[in-house]
Computed example of a mutant assay.
Amino acid sequence: MKKSLIAATAAALLATGCATPFAPAPLATNFQSGKQPKLQAAAHWHTIAGDVAAKLSAAIPANTPLFVNQQANASTFERAFTSQLVTALIEAGHPVMRSPEGALRVGVDTQAVPFAADRPQYRHAGKATALGAGIWVLYDIVEYASNGPAKAALLALGAADAYAWFDSEFAGGGTPAMEIIVTTSVTDASRYVARNTSVYYVDDADQRLYKTPVQSHAKAFQVVGGE
């Protein structure tokens, strides 16, 4: 009887979870899964410049003159992104001026944030499920192939490629160690007129492109002390 009571108590504890009702600090939990783009090419910079221009355009009156400020000590990314933003704003129909007089100022601020390397990345709850779904979807591609060995071969190829097809959305490798916060602001003399902030992953091998020249050439020196 005693053993049965102990077993029942243990089962009840497992059913209600292992967390105690009181703790000295909040328990760490994960955010709900989300997706964040990884910048891997200059074409990606052009894409996000177009996206930023579109979002700013929605908050700026039409035909408002704009002046895009370019920082002197800019990173490779900042120089390219600022130039691409000028192009995107012109394509959106805004007059972009070469001097700030009589225009709203557009400023780009970036912050490269390094995190710990080798952060875990859980892409799928079950890869076999994705493969199974892929077989059915890719079946439509070979539905009209001739019957017999040719069709069987195409179906086998579809099964082999299904996982790669659906997994292509995700960037290769682990979670990047660096992220970049890109904030673009439109201001007049006294207030913010429009503002957009986005966060992106940065390929670890390309971190130098997102650092200012001062950051890129900074060196750390170890001081060996005397008394």
Rank of each mutant, 00 (worst) to 15 (best):
T197H: 02
L85H: 00
Q71L: 11
A74G: 12
R79V: 05
V68S: 02
G132M: 10
G172E: 08
A59W: 07
N147R: 13
V224M: 08
T9E: 04
V223D: 12
T129N: 12
G173W: 05
L209T: 05
S75W: 02
F166H: 06
L154D: 13
A53E: 14
Q70G: 08
Q121N: 11
G126W: 00
T187L: 13
Y139K: 03
V137A: 12
V214F: 03
L39R: 05
L85I: 01
A25W: 00
P95T: 06
G132F: 08
C18E: 10
D188E: 14
T16N: 05
A205V: 14
I90D: 05
P37V: 07
D203P: 12
P149M: 14
V186E: 07
A156N: 13
K127H: 02
L155P: 00
I141T: 15
K55R: 09
L27R: 10
T187Y: 09
P61M: 01
E227A: 11
S33G: 03
S190G: 15
A189M: 13
A58T: 13
K2H: 04
N147I: 14
V223S: 12
G134P: 12
M178F: 12
M97L: 08
P21I: 00
T175F: 06
P213D: 01
Q36S: 12
D161I: 09
L89F: 05
Q71H: 03
T9W: 01
A10R: 01
A112E: 08
Y122V: 15
R208P: 04
S99H: 07
S99A: 09
W136K: 11
H124K: 01
V193S: 06
A171P: 12
N30F: 09
R98P: 00
Y122A: 14
A205W: 08
L138H: 01
T29R: 08
